[in-house]
Simulated scan of single mutants.
Amino acid sequence: MKPSLKLLAALYPFGAGAMGVNLFFASLIGSWLGWRVLTPWEAAAGGLVIGLPATYAFACHIVRLMKQAEDP
């Protein structure tokens, strides 16, 4: 079952924020390999993009849990 737009809209700020933070810290770890560190603005912009599929996947998981809780 697909999640509703209302659920996606409610979860998206959290998903985008989490992905932005994860992207920033991943770039810090990547600096050990000689890669450049992303600025916080670049990480936030990347989080907005990467947050879309992550939020959709998490919302699908929430819908499955809600359905499981409703079934006896």
Rank of each mutant, 00 (worst) to 15 (best):
M1Q: 07
M1P: 07
M1E: 09
M1S: 05
K2R: 12
P3D: 00
P3L: 01
S4H: 00
S4A: 05
S4W: 00
S4L: 01
S4M: 05
L5S: 10
L5K: 05
K6I: 00
K6L: 04
K6H: 05
L7Q: 07
L7F: 00
L7K: 00
L7M: 04
L8T: 01
L8G: 02
A9T: 00
A9V: 07
A9R: 02
L11K: 04
Y12I: 00
P13R: 02
P13V: 08
P13F: 01
P13N: 04
G15E: 04
A16C: 00
G17Y: 01
G17A: 06
M19I: 05
M19E: 10
G20W: 06
V21T: 12
V21H: 04
N22M: 11
N22H: 09
L23N: 12
F25R: 08
A26C: 09
L28K: 12
L28P: 03
L28Q: 13
I29R: 08
I29D: 03
I29H: 01
G30Q: 15
S31L: 08
S31E: 09
W32F: 15
L33K: 12
L33E: 12
L33P: 07
G34Y: 02
L38I: 11
L38T: 06
T39A: 02
T39M: 04
P40D: 08
W41D: 12
E42T: 11
E42F: 03
E42P: 00
A44G: 10
G47V: 12
G47K: 10
G47Q: 06
L48T: 10
L48W: 09
G51H: 05
G51K: 02
L52G: 06
L52D: 04
L52C: 01
P53F: 04
T55I: 02
T55L: 00
Y56N: 10
Y56T: 09
Y56W: 15
F58L: 15
F58Q: 14
A59V: 07
A59D: 02
C60H: 14
C60W: 07
C60S: 12
H61R: 14
H61C: 13
I62D: 11
I62Y: 02
V63A: 03
R64I: 12
L65H: 13
L65M: 15
K67C: 13
Q68A: 15
Q68N: 15
A69L: 06
E70F: 07
